[in-house]
Design a binder for these strands. Structure first.
Lengths: 211, 211
DNA sequence: TAGCGGCTACGTATAACTACTGAATTCCTT
DNA sequence: AAGGAATTCAGTAGTTATACGTAGCCGCTA
């Protein structure tokens, strides 16, 4: 019996490419869409074994979508399909219930290998990703800067800093004292080893708090 | 005679998708690659009528590549193929010699329409892009923030600011006085309507000066 | 209930950046 | 050669952020 595959990606050309790659024995692309709601609707009725999930779609967080789908359909294997090879994204996706993480520059052979691996009940990681994770794990014993946890309040304030508000403006917005904002900002700088605003802003962007 | 098409994109799946979309009468995909050097090598020998050019590839600026190809092969029609719908990118690409600008969420019909249009010697713009350009042109008579020109020195300093250097560090790096850096920074803030460092950093990122 | 983490807030001092004005030099274009 | 833009530097004043230390309050949990 053919493995039934569904795919979501906001780029039609990527869907066509995947479909083209996967047309072959034992593989059956049964549903594709560029729209998250359409995917969720489909999952209420239809079923499949493997989902290719683009994790960078406008307006939708791939991580949230992954969690949501896992709840709806726990048996569906999810392969995250992304052009980002940053380790924190991989970790977040795998922790959100993905069975695999594949880069978009993968060739046909690798894509099929990924499907086979997750269908066997194992996890699949792109070779590039494996290298990166291994290297990070070996070189820095300490946690990656992405893994440094921020409290909710800190995230909120970091977001506002990155949006261009001054400390005073943040204080006014959150109805707290200027000094409190300064304290939070100092803690943020220390946690993130940021010497100035520029580094804080870049961290906020990397963490997806803005833009 | 079939139109000969070549395509470059760092994602194999996009190349497959394009190829899949374009296999049909009067269209012949003669060369595809994920590598800029391979494309340039090909252009020295082979020829084609239309090139699909991904403008966001690691290590290569799509704008520079476009200019370079125009010099090598002025008769080749270039269609920029991107997932970004920001007007400044469109303008830059068209000024660099592209004949068309297509978004990656375009369907088969639109892609073929784009090829027909540029083959007829006209320019093709995605409908979404047209809307955006029109809206910008109507609402703000003033130029978009992206079009505000920065001098080379200003770009250099904006880059260093966004990398997290303080004014003093920038002065040391460029062998100029602190006051000069402050002047440049002030001019940057005024040109870009930035009230603080955070906004400058975001502008630098949007302009592709860092990351 | 004792302890911990998170959020709040203040004092003081220094460093960094902002705002405005003025000006000399070089380089490029007309 | 003249004009203009770009780059350089400075004075003065004011605002904002950083860098310590210190500490009360709250909620959760061991």
């Amino acid at each position: 019996m053919a493995v039934r595959i569904i795919a979501i990606d906001d780029h039609q050309v990527v869907i066509d490419g995947l479909t083209s790659m996967l047309t072959g024995a034992e593989l059956d692309v049964v549903f594709t869409t560029t729209n998250a709601d359409a995917l969720l609707s489909y999952l209420e009725q239809g079923s499949a074994e493997v989902l290719f999930l683009d994790i960078q779609m406008p307006g939708v967080s791939g991580i949230d979508l992954c969690r949501q789908i896992r709840k709806l359909n726990p048996d569906l294997r999810i392969i995250a399909f992304s052009s980002f090879d940053e380790s924190h994204l991989v970790k977040q996706m795998m922790r959100s219930g993905a069975s695999g993480y594949l880069l978009k520059n993968a060739d046909k052979q690798t894509v099929i290998k990924a499907i086979e691996t997750v269908m066997a009940g194992e996890e699949f990681l792109d070779e590039t990703i494996k290298d990166i994770l291994l290297k990070e794990s070996l070189t820095g014993q300490r946690r990656s800067i992405f893994d440094i946890p921020l409290t909710n309040r800190e995230k909120e304030i970091l977001k506002l800093i990155a949006e261009g508000l001054s400390n005073q403006e943040i204080a006014d917005r959150l109805y707290i004292s200027l000094r409190t904002v300064e304290t939070h900002r100092l803690n943020l700088s220390q946690k993130l080893s940021a010497k100035n605003t520029a580094m804080l802003v870049k961290e906020a962007i990397r963490r997806g708090l803005v833009e």
